[in-house]
Design a protein around this nucleic acid. Sequence first.
DNA 1: CTGTTAGCGCCTTCAC
DNA 2: GTGAAGGCGCTAACAG
Lengths: 337, 337
Amino acid sequence: MSTFRGARQPTIKEVASRAGVSPMTVSRTLAGGRNVRPDVQERVMEAVKELGYYRNENARSLRPGQPSGLVGVAITNLANPYYGNFALGVEEVAAEHGRRILLGNTGEDDARERQLVSDFIGRQVDGLILVPTSGDAEHLRPERLGDVPLVLASRRVPGLEVDTVLLDDVGGAYRGTRSLLDAGHTRIGFLGNRSSVFTGERRYRGYERAMLEHGAAIDPRIVFRDQQDVAAAARAAKAMFDLADAPTAVFSANNRNTIGAIREIGRRIRDGEPLHPAVVSFDDFELSELMPVPVTVIDHDARLLGREAATLLFSRLDGTAEDGPRTVELPVSIEFP
Amino acid sequence: MSTFRGARQPTIKEVASRAGVSPMTVSRTLAGGRNVRPDVQERVMEAVKELGYYRNENARSLRPGQPSGLVGVAITNLANPYYGNFALGVEEVAAEHGRRILLGNTGEDDARERQLVSDFIGRQVDGLILVPTSGDAEHLRPERLGDVPLVLASRRVPGLEVDTVLLDDVGGAYRGTRSLLDAGHTRIGFLGNRSSVFTGERRYRGYERAMLEHGAAIDPRIVFRDQQDVAAAARAAKAMFDLADAPTAVFSANNRNTIGAIREIGRRIRDGEPLHPAVVSFDDFELSELMPVPVTVIDHDARLLGREAATLLFSRLDGTAEDGPRTVELPVSIEFP
DNA sequence: CTGTTAGCGCCTTCAC
DNA sequence: GTGAAGGCGCTAACAG
């Protein structure tokens, strides 16, 4: 029972000898058949089929200047449906351009991100798409990447000027908070990410701006900015509603916080508490219309974000792109209950 | 503004000449440094750093018998959080084994699956993990794959005997349906996938077995087996509840059908209909505890399924595996409301 | 301990 | 319209 040595694939030589031609003729046939007699092409294709031959793409891309046809994609958390959709968008556009994606999950770990990126470079990717973990920019500088084009998605990296696709975090959070203020709420709690997370910071800024503009006070006791998962969010919501002067409305900066908050609110309602806060959620979730409290959703399209990132990358690869780094900010839409 | 030609990476030769040694010494150093003087190693590593050199993995794996370190993964729908988690599980185990994944989305399209698989083979993947679209087995036969090991996940392909990871679909559906019967329901509707989808068929079988065993009649008018998305599921649920003799409980064979059914039920309840069916859902979903009707969930771990698939594959690659094709069937757990 | 040779699979370039 | 030579980046095998 010896170690599996990697099945040997048939090579162009074997196809050639089977078809009674030289490897060059096989190569030319596979490249479209220019300057190869039709009957010879036919013999070649037959040999290809019989042997189950597939052209070795790795050997092909060995030649300098030959693209590998690979795009390296590193995201923070594939378990989050949002990033699944993002990856799908990237994959779709890559496929449309005849490229394949190498996918890695960073889990918000800087070291893992570095490791993935260098591996991708070692595999000769034509480009990189990255949802960066809030870290330093050193390992992402163009010269460190051997000038492989890089597109950032969802978040920026401080000090790194590259093509970027973002959501309108600030505007969405502003408008969401605004809708609560317009409905008469002034005591509005905030649930969100660590401020070190780019989107966490931006969404807080939108909340803050709306509050200040309206002359509403921001009470630090109902601002919770450190929840990265549902359980933590539920605990924060509990602390918020345990206050004597609990908020009458909650702005939640992302899906995870929304689920946690609503879980806590639902629990209290089932326990008979006379609690009916309005909720605004950045990020959509399914069945939001069936929640025990009305939920306003700030919706956006992760798949589109992925498509935009890939489009940006390929425009760079095709040389269609202008020179400077570009930023695309996708709009969000507000859906009232 | 010419086309971007793929940034040329520094090669082992450049590192060698910079460090004043031969390429072999660089190669040896990078391979761990056996038989290289420490001070020379240091010089080499310095040159590597200065030049930003990354070993070209594609060139490396050109050598026959050398694994590429790549695993091809094709799934049906990355937008489905279930498969996002599955992909994550595969990625994790692959990373633990120092492998990277090439990810493709088939969208339940046979042609696309064939295309992806041949591309993966052309890129010299060491193995394949596939959630097959219910199609034929021809293009997946070992000889067509150049004997690259293949693991199927979630579904089987008729006539293809390979390593497979499945859920206990039949048992889960049986127990779920059984719990409804035990609660006194006998008129139980079924919502599910096309029977051509492997899991759709298996889950129906579990439902059917429980019903027949209990002596409950299966009324074709409340069995809907052709819904692949939420909208279709909601329509099916509507048809079901529009009947004069509507069911008192619903068994839903997957997440998409559950969401559709509950959306429809919620709508009717809001409209004042005196409707309170019990629901059993194969597949978990968030906030199921807050639904307007009690939902029993047949839960399972997609990420674990991915991990198992990858584990099966790597045991094959390491030669640890026994000979015959193996099937792993993961248990499901039932969570009552 | 280090270097030279040769060859992996493919394709550009140059003959014929 | 076809083939032979050579080289892409890397490393086993064989010197020294």
